[in-house]
Amino acid sequence: MDILDQFYFLFADFVEPKKRIFVGYLLLSIVIAFSWLMFIKRFTISNALARIFDGKIFFSRSAIADYKIFAINRVISSIISPLLVTQLTIATGIYFALHNQDFIPSGYYSDVSKTAVVAMFSVALFIVDDFTKYLIHRWMHRMPLLWAIHKIHHSAETLTPVTVYRVHPLEGVLYATRSAVAQAVALSVFFFLFGNSVSLATVVGVNVLVFVFHVTGSNLRHSHIDISYWPWLEHIFISPSQHQLHHSVAEEHFDKNFGAALAVWDWLFGSLHLSEKDQDRNLVFGLDASERTSATDLRTMYLTPFVEIADIVRNRFRRVRANVAAALTAHRRKGSQFRAKARTVFGKL
């Protein structure tokens, strides 16, 4: 690999429209941020520019750690990705299994117009994808074993679009598997029902709905520009502000706004928190000291999850062992009581 190839390998995501940090989406995010600050927040041009390109944020120690993690994860992912189960394997399995039921034969709706099928598939895939993201994200916060991994992402003390890559490799594996399962379910069910007319409505090779999500500033979720929506809209779509609030250290913001694009899941399952007035002045990002991780030290970030997972498993095991021992003692005690009783009964005979 020559130096140019290596460069491309590291930064390929910036020129890939399937990725959130595609340079086009980043530029659009700047335009959106600029317009927000100018027209809604009434900043002057120079103040708006200074706010957007704030060196204290982009060159903070936390952001620099993000950039390093971005590069390291790129290498790790190139090694692990080929080993992961593909959506084709899962989709084929589900597609085969769907033939085991006789209620609906395969291709039963194959005469539905292609346009309708493509539209339905694109929407269904977006919804399934978004819902599974919500679900996994919620688990990541609620289950200690997963939180040990996910807190690396939350250790960021400043948010930049690259923070989306600030994840432990184990989380990468989990998310890739989730993505494979979500796509496989949508693919196989649609192929079974509608046959070969299934395909995706795309713009620059991306599901049109995902494209809309990206061009409307998905990158601003991880940023210091707190764009909020009208309250009613924040019940439907997660605004950048709502996601920033998700990163807040304040206790009242814990376990809120797990959603990716849609807020309806949070609304439905009671984890929705609307954005707050002037929240950018009040929000502090990161974790409190009890979380035993670091915003800047890579070794801590990469290794601590393994240590914590081992601790959790060990503690669970100890607890199970203690419970089993207690149950056995109780059983033995009962046994000896029974024997004593039997002796008194049979002894009389």
Binding site: T86, Y175, A176, V198, S199, L200
Partner: peptide
């Protein structure tokens, strides 16, 4: 019989850096 399924699955590639929030 699963050729088109495979074709579309390949187009919709996923990778380990699937975006997380």
């Amino acid at each position: 019989a699963t050729g088109d399924l495979a074709k579309l699955a390949k187009e919709m590639d996923k990778d380990m850096n699937a975006e997380t929030d």
